[in-house]
Amino acid sequence: MNPILDKARVIKAYRWMLMARLLDERLAQLYRAGRIFGGVFLGKGQEALSVSMGMVLNRQDVYAPLIRDGAGRLAFGESALDALRTCMGSPMGPMRGRDGNVHRGRPKEGYLPMISHLGASISVVNGALMAKRMKGEKKFVGIASIGDGATSTGAFHEAINQAAIEKLPLVLVVANNQYAYSTPTSSQFACQSLSQKAIGYGVSDHEVDGTSLTDCLKTMQDATDRARQGEGPQLVIANLLRLCGHGEHDDAHYITPELKASSVGADCLKLAENTLQSDYHISKESLEIWKEETVLEINQSIEQVQREGAPDPYHHSWKSLISRELCEHS
């Protein structure tokens, strides 16, 4: 059997998916209770794909997740605590209240913080990979995660082309989740499948059922293996459906019943639970216990974040440069 599908790893992947889903649900509650500043953006329906990215990466790799990658972030090493700290604006989190919600990361650890401009992270991953090559590192990869909407940007075009020219070990993962905010894919691209774009750039392509955890794990493992072995950039298209609005402010009324009822509309978490029970002989009781343990950890993290308080604007360092002597007065 493919080692990525051994029992321990699939369980691990499932538990990160579960935590991402339960974390999302708590974030939605906190949002409705007015405990979150700004918006809340959930990854419901994308956890199988997302977690697979985190599962196939190593410490020396680079990961640029996007808005719906709570599961991938956890699998890459982020704690639920750091996620909550950023969403709730704790001064102890990696962004210290300076940036929020999905805009978080620890760049020095290869975990890149997204900006809101779509497609803009891909070339940043490219540069990190170019640097690693110049430094003589070996067998590293970088994953950039985007959605179908970002494939329409100039930044996407420039960056995938750049990666192809430089033969970089980039795995570019597109969650083809059928909508960019409310815009359906028919208004986003006119090719039959997004994987057709690969040939134009001279990169390899993979297409996967984004609702299947085992398929996503296999495909992500294959794509990253190829990139690690020097086969150049890999474009992965995962077909799935966003099972929520763009953010919690959006009721997603525009998602058609036909799509919801189609195969892309399946809930990857439920499918993973079915697979765990049927193929890995995990009992219902175990699933229940895992859920309880996860809820407990999330609740403890929320309590801790609430104790950490808020950043103090009057004792904040309002300096935008490291070179303090070059900062303008503010």
Partner: peptide
């Protein structure tokens, strides 16, 4: 765009 984006990644 990609030139400058890649510079940011390399600087990191």
């Amino acid at each position: 765009d990609a030139m400058i984006g890649s510079a940011v990644g390399a600087a990191i």
